[in-house]
Structure formats: structure tokens, C-alpha cells
Lab assay of single mutants.
Amino acid sequence: MPSETPQAEVGPTGCPHRSGPHSAKGSLEKGSPEDKEAKEPLWIRPDAPSRCTWQLGRPASESPHHHTAPAKSPKILPDILKKIGDTPMVRINKIGKKFGLKCELLAKCEFFNAGGSVKDRISLRMIEDAERDGTLKPGDTIIEPTSGNTGIGLALAAAVRGYRCIIVMPEKMSSEKVDVLRALGAEIVRTPTNARFDSPESHVGVAWRLKNEIPNSHILDQYRNASNPLAHYDTTADEILQQCDGKLDMLVASVGTGGTITGIARKLKEKCPGCRIIGVDPEGSILAEPEELNQTEQTTYEVEGIGYDFIPTVLDRTVVDKWFKSNDEEAFTFARMLIAQEGLLCGGSAGSTVAVAVKAAQELQEGQRCVVILPDSVRNYMTKFLSDRWMLQKGFLKEEDLTEKKPWWWHLRVQELGLSAPLTVLPTITCGHTIEILREKGFDQAPVVDEAGVILGMVTLGNMLSSLLAGKVQPSDQVGKVIYKQFKQIRLTDTLGRLSHILEMDHFALVV
């Protein structure tokens, strides 16, 4: 994948999101292997301009796509893939009243899908469409860049269908997702969380590099694949309309690839034109409109599966009536509230959605109805927002919020430890010299600072030695090549209790 991002070429006709291997024109390309080798690009942008032909009021008969309808489940399912879809609609009884809503608040519980998330729908649909058009064949390999849930859905379907599955996901995604993927037989590649989507090191860039190296491999490409919004247009939206008897006044959905909100909203605009569509985008993402909503100094966020630093091709923002931004604290607070007060075992993005819903639905009156999409299960986040310690460490809970008995030293300040200034190293000294210094002084790690004293990161003896043994660096290389740029900081005025929580999850903390 090139470091400079080429513009994806656009073909003359058809839909841009065809499933299957992508040609340089962004659509299915038939021909000899030699032709494909000559024409197939190194990668295709996940934010390529959409060429979708959908228009409100256009006859369904003019759609270029294969459409399906929700099917009634048999008493005995032939395999677990038949437990994807037909998820329950559940009334939220307490939270709406707590925040003064007059309307009825309903939750579409997508964590009841077989793999635990709304992404099971698009995973199965992308595979079925690729099999139907002859792209996927027995023994082929599926590769997908994902925040985890699409990966789980694909790995689940691949396990049943017999495909090899490789999932490329950023490091910030939970260990629970990784464990589930491994249990399903998927191979996992992790990428830096802070890598831009168009960087060769991003999950998108690495996935395309693997595709170019592995024979008979395919990126189904949830960011561009029409099967993504079509899955929701054909099934999720129809289920909502049936469950609500066609009567709903507002739908609120958090947005990642945009397939969920695009597919549902398009069908609702056709069948229930008075329904307002509300999009939820986390602070630090750029999906919301108008652009002024996205202006923030924050560039990272903890909530998973929603928000991006690019506009995915499948996201149709014209069908969203209003956007709201959400933050991590309210997302996790509301997710825990949904679990504790409503018994809905949902993930953090569901918290984002409901946090926005109780604001947006203030305009609705008694007798009206708001539906929220709860995308995934708490299963993926047992060591994250479900953990009091994690919430404390991230600053989303305060010590006084917890009532468990603490040891005698818990409320003492870090400054009472009488710490001395640490050994520091410059980023320009060599790895070999740094190892000598650390061994001589008896230290395992040291902060790396520039000549102005600005902290650049941390270097550890173990990481340097393993990097040297693996051949990633040489003793003569500058130590700046092996620094940890993500590390926890703590102030002298913070409590030892807070430091204790940090050290339970990290090997060190830097006192500043």
C-alpha cells in the first residue's frame, strides 16, 4: 500500500459497493488471473465517493441489488447463522422517566444476534452475496479491517462455511474481542490505534497488504460494500417497522461504517417519512454534520465500534436529520445504567446512543415513540467499562463513588512517597548505550525526554532486548525507535489509591 493515498477510480455505471474482489474501477472485475494482476490496485480507499443510485421515491424494481426479506425461524435451526436477525424490541421503562421523557422509549437489542452484535447481519450478508456472485469459493481466505464486531461476525460465518479468516484490528480494541476471535479460529493482526486510516500501518493498510500477498484472499470491505446497508434496509428496518406496527417518530443510532443508519433510515424514509433520524458520533470522530460539531482538541476516545477519521463510502449522511456528539463518560455511564436499571447487557456504544436519545427525544410528546439501536453486548468489555477499576483509572468514576473498604494508605498523596527525580535518556542515544546505562543503574525503564525536557515516551529494558533479539533494531539504532509513546501519567497530588489502580493494569506510571 502506498504512503500517498491515490484516488480510487470510478467506473461508468453500476453501484460502487459490489461485493467481491475490487477492480481499479471499484466494481467486480472478471477475466484471467493475468488481467486481474495487471488491473487490481494495491488498495482502494474506504472513503471513495459513493456511486449508489438510491433515491427517495425511486421504484424498488430499479435497484441493481439482490434483495432479501426477513424469514421466520424454524423450530430447529440448521446452523447458528440462522440465529442472525429477528432481534427483540424491548421497552426501556426507567431511564426515559428518569430523564423526563414523555414518549415511549424502545430498544432494538442487536446483541441477541448469534455473534453478539449488529455486525453479524452485514457479515453474513457480505459472505452470502460474495458466494452468490462467485467471488468467494471453498478454501478462500477472508481478510477484514475491523474494530472487532464485524470480525467476530465474519469469523463466526467463516467457521460454519469453512473459510480461512484473518482479522486486522487496532490495538485499542478489547482483549475479549481478541479472545472470541481466536476461539472462532480467526487469525488476528493488531495495528497502532493512532495510525491514520490511509497510513500503511493502519488496520485498513495492513489488511490490503495481506490481501496482495495471500492468494485467493478477499477483503469484503464493510466500508464500501453495498451488502452492509442492504442488510439493514432489507431486514433490520423491516423488523423495526413490523415490531412497531409502522408507528415510530424517531430513530437514534450510533454511527461507525454508517451501514446501520443508512440502511434503516432509507427504508424508514420510504415507509415512515415523518420519522426523524438521529445520528450519534463520538467526540474525536469526524462523521457528524455540520462540520463545526467535529471541532475539538480530542483525537482519541475509548468507546469502541463507532466514529472514524474518514467518511466511509457506505455512509449516506443525507438521510440523517440531526447529529449529536457523545463523550466517553456519558457513554459508559449510560451503558452501566442500562445494565443495572433495565437488565440490558449492552456495550458502550449503546450507552452513547441512549445518552443522546434522552436529549433528542425531549421534543417528542406522549403517545409518540423513539427507537434506539443497541449494537453489541457487554461480553466484549468485561475488563473495560464493566470494571470499576478501569473506570477509575480512566477518570470516568471517582473514588467516592465506590463504597468498598480501602487499605490505610489509600488516600495518601503520591508526594508522600518522597520520590527522587528519575533517570532520563535522550532519544538520540543508541539502544546499546541505553541498555548499558539501565543495567549500570539497576533500572528496568526510563523516560525519554528531548533537550527541552519534554517527555516523549518510555523505554524499557525488556522491550529493547526483545527488539534486538527479533532483529527489529540494532544496538547502533537510536533509542527513539523503541519508545512507548502511550503511558499513564500521575500527579504528586493524586492518591496512592489512584496509582494502585493504574499499576494493576500497566507496568509503570510516570509522575509529573
Rank of each mutant, 00 (worst) to 15 (best):
I188S: 03
E176N: 02
T13P: 10
T262G: 06
E176C: 03
A60V: 11
R125T: 05
S202Q: 07
S199Y: 06
R276S: 05
P12R: 15
P138G: 14
C52F: 00
G26N: 10
T53G: 09
C275G: 06
Q242E: 14
A158H: 01
H22I: 04
L251H: 04
Y223H: 01
G116C: 13
I92E: 00
I80Q: 01
G134N: 07
A237M: 02
L154P: 02
I127G: 02
G115Q: 08
G31L: 03
I80E: 01
K30L: 10
K75H: 06
A157L: 03
H203T: 08
H203G: 05
I127Y: 08
A60Q: 10
V10C: 13
D86S: 10
V160H: 00
G31M: 06
R91E: 10
W208L: 05
P78R: 04
A8P: 03
I44S: 13
K119T: 00
P74Q: 09
A155Q: 02
T53L: 09
C52Y: 00
K269L: 03
F111C: 03
L136M: 08
Y233D: 05
P138E: 08
L136P: 01
A207V: 02
L124A: 11
E62Q: 14
K177P: 00
E34I: 05
N225I: 00
K98V: 12
L154S: 02
K269P: 01
E4T: 05
F197G: 05
E213C: 08
V10T: 12
P6Y: 11
C244D: 00
S175A: 10
L248P: 12
G259D: 01
D249T: 07
A265K: 05
T262Q: 00
G246T: 15
R276Q: 07
I142P: 02
K97P: 07
K271F: 15
H22Y: 09
S217M: 01
K94Y: 11
L154Q: 01
I167Q: 08
K82S: 07
C52E: 00
I166M: 09
G259F: 00
W54H: 06
K119N: 02
Q55Y: 10
S117F: 03
D234F: 07
P12N: 11
Q55D: 11
D47L: 02
I92Y: 06
C275R: 00
G96K: 09
S3E: 10
I84K: 09
L77F: 15
G11A: 15
W54V: 06
S199L: 06
D234I: 03
S199A: 04
I167F: 06
H17C: 04
K36D: 05
N194Q: 11
K94I: 05
M89P: 03
G153W: 01
M169G: 01
L106E: 08
T260R: 03
K83D: 10
G134F: 06
R121N: 01
T262C: 09
E4M: 03
C15R: 03
N225R: 02
Y163W: 02
H203F: 05
F197V: 03
V178A: 11
L248V: 13
D129H: 08
R51Q: 09
K30N: 11
N93D: 10
E40T: 11
E34F: 14
D133L: 13
C109W: 06
W208C: 07
I143F: 06
V180C: 07
G256K: 01
K72G: 09
V206I: 13
I44M: 13
M89C: 06
K177W: 00
P33L: 08
W54R: 06
G259Y: 02
T236I: 08
G115E: 08
R91H: 04
K271H: 13
I167E: 08
R132G: 05
R121C: 00
I84E: 08
C165Q: 01
Q7F: 11
K75Q: 11
N93S: 15
S61C: 14
G205K: 09
L56W: 09
C165R: 03
I261V: 14
Q242S: 06
L156D: 01
R196N: 11
S202D: 06
K25D: 15
T135V: 08
E40Q: 11
E144Y: 02
P229N: 01
